[in-house]
Design a protein around this nucleic acid. Sequence first.
DNA 1: GCCGTTTTCGGCCCGACTGTTTTCAGTCG
Length: 580
Amino acid sequence: MPELDNVAIARQLELMGDLLEIAGADKFRFLSYRKAANSIRAWPEQLSALADDGRLTEVPGIGKKLAASIEEMLHRGTFAELEEAKKAIPPGLVEVMDIPGVGPKRAKQFYDKLGVDSVGALNKMLDSGKLEKLGGMGAKSVENIRKGHAAYLAHHGRMLLMDALPLADRMVEKLEALPSVVRAVPAGSLRRMQETIGDIDIIVASDEPEVVMAAVRDLPVVAEVIASGATKTSVLTTSGPQVDVRVVRPDEFGAALQYFTGSKEHNVHLREIAKKRALKVNEYGVFRVGEDGSEGQRLGGASEDEVYRLLGMEVPPPEIRHDTGEIDAAEAHELPRLLESGDIRGDFHVHSSSTDSHSTIEENRAMASELGYEYVVVTDHAYDLRMVGGLSVEQLEEQWAHVDRLNAEDSGPVVLKGIELNIGADGGVDYGPDVLARFDLCVASLHSGWNEPAEVVTQRLLRAMENPFVDIIGHPTGRVIGRRDPLSLDMDAVLAKAAETGTIMEVNAYPDRLDLCDTHLRLARRLGVRIAIGTDAHRAEHMRYMRYGVATCRRGWISAEECLNAQPLDVVRSWLRRSR
DNA sequence: GCCGTTTTCGGCCCGACTGTTTTCAGTCG
């Protein structure tokens, strides 16, 4: 019986919540499953370990009942209630709810009346004309679901942050150019810098909403207007993603930005706290609630600072608003000062044209200079990755001589001699200690093993970390977002070994990797493991992806003190294992 | 199903837009 990790447990609870919702269960009952799943996904320890000590109920949202279900899951791989729920509602119906325009009620109706139990089955019904005959469904509703189904097929799976950010920036720029617009800011998952984005939310401050709504409908990137009311317009853009633009009065801007930045879980928790203090928070401001429960005096909401201040809190950075501890920290005025782009002094993972990059070491160095860096590391592929021209010792000698000349020439950023080693089947690396000792630093990465069991991959990684010349582990889980699952690894064991050996863990900033991810980073931080961001640039421009690495670190609560990139060169050297 | 400095019972966040409803339900965020 393979051990269920936290994500697997969270998924089962989410499925249970979805099935309960479709079945028409009490709202707060199914919400409690989702709430528990949310905190489990972010929990730094494995629940299997907590269960052994009888500490499951320490996780917020897990009570006696869910603790028992989780114990059962850990033993049997599933739990009785879920099996029962699956008999009542086919799990395929859950996916039908992913179609815009179909929620739990309609999904249930389609199943009960037409036997729809999957997206495919719904597609057939769309063509049959039977949907129109159902109660409460008119021609327009069916047409909306038809469009939703098309959008689901075309755009199922979310877009990468790097694809969404430039589109949002362009739209914001156009809107801010309007005379009637005071401010326009992207909110939602984009502002929280999530790895992937579903749709784009933009909040606009203006006293002339109708002018803004008309302007949004006329934006050149708009392919279709889905809905357009007095204060909200939803459009499909030519590149695919849906964009929702909301207009608020300038004195409501902070409240609206806070509200639409989310996350949903963060906001729910915030409003609970407000309510306990006889306050109400909505997208228009913070209000005192009257004795009779009526909405009383408006206390503020022009800025986000004001909203949180009225609740007695510091402002949590958008990246950490997941309701995974940031609200407690904000109330206690104990939020960490997170790493910022301005803290970054260099890049620890950059390839050159000596192997498979399009850019030379000089071009990388020029980019480092443009970015204001003090140093940049060349980490070309090592010998064993022959496929991309991994370097022989002779080629390395040439590169080192070249780097020495560059560093002697002028006063640009210092180029460090690095390498991206391959972790072999036995945990060994490409070169012997005599060669490894000559690098300034070594990154070591797994480039194989996607079909190996967790124990094997974990052992390879642990072995590599016992090599005193391995300074940094590159893209530790090997995932490629939307294309390749992470390696199955015992991350607790890996990070414990990193703490023990002083090995630094990489945050690979390449936008479809972002590896380590936020949850692993929070665990690393707890264990005292240090972090290095590398862009894995394969052309000099890729070094600009550093912003995605910084965002990932921020989502993992990493501060400048914990990040190698924020240190001056002499401190960098002192953190490396080889210098101890 | 969870949770408690108002509570171990009775709460649990809030509003906009759409369509088909003749007064509101469903969906979405």
